Amino acid sequence: MTDQQPQQPENVTPPAPHPGQPQPPQYQAPQPGQPQPPQYQTPYPGQGQYQASYPQMSQQPPAPNQGQNYPQQKSKLVAGLLGIFLGGLGIHRFYLGYTLIGIIQIVVTIVLSSLGLGFLALWGLVEGIMILAGAASFRHDAKNLPLRD
């Protein structure tokens, strides 16, 4: 048995496409004696079957909470503990983004400590407790984002 391809008539024209429809690609049967294009196969079974389901890198949205456009919420627990343990230095205020108040707390604590009134550094301890208790003035950070629990 020999593998013979059915002979196609030479002067047959394909039907004309309807207006507005794309024209199907035209293929020519290989002529005897002409070199045939190489046939490519995938080197591994099933290699190409999943490639279309993965999005391109340029199509993926940016990950949340990265960069300047996605500010992160500050933790209420961290802010409260910083206020309790380092509140006299205003570290909790720096953490929440209130830089000016943090600097004022550092200066006031240093000045009062040099005058022998260091016990007034309890100001930070009280604020730390207020943060943990959820007082109205400590529910948001400097960017007006709510503190996360």
Rank of each mutant, 00 (worst) to 15 (best):
Q68N: 13
P37M: 06
L86S: 08
P14L: 13
R93I: 06
Q59K: 13
P55E: 09
Q34R: 12
A136Q: 15
T13C: 00
K74G: 05
I101N: 06
A16L: 08
P30E: 02
Q34D: 15
Q59R: 10
P25L: 11
Q60Y: 02
L125W: 03
P38L: 09
R139T: 09
K74W: 01
R139A: 14
I101C: 02
L117M: 15
R139N: 12
L132I: 09
Q31V: 14
S75Y: 09
P71D: 10
Q66Y: 10
P30K: 00
P19R: 13
P24L: 14
I104N: 03
H18F: 04
H18Y: 06
K74A: 06
G80M: 04
M130F: 10
Q51I: 10
P45W: 02
A16Q: 14
Q34E: 15
Q31I: 03
I103F: 13
T99Y: 14
Q72F: 03
I91V: 15
V108F: 08
E127D: 13
Q72V: 11
P32N: 12
I103A: 14
L120G: 00
L81G: 00
L86H: 00
T99G: 07
G87R: 02
Y70Q: 14
Y50V: 07
L82T: 05
P45S: 07
Q47I: 09
I131Q: 00
H18V: 06
D141Q: 10
A16D: 11
Y95V: 05
A121Y: 03
M130G: 01
P15T: 10
G33V: 05
R139Y: 01
P30V: 08
G134D: 11
L81F: 14
Q39K: 09
G134I: 02
T99H: 10
F85M: 07
F119M: 11
G46P: 04
Q49R: 13
I110T: 11
A121G: 15
I104C: 11
K76F: 02
V78R: 03
L125F: 15
S58E: 14
P19F: 11
V111E: 03
P62T: 04
A16I: 07
P22A: 07
N65D: 11
G46S: 11
P45Q: 09
A63V: 12
P55M: 07
Q68S: 14
I129A: 14
R93Y: 05
M57S: 09
H18A: 15
P38F: 06
G83F: 06
V78D: 01
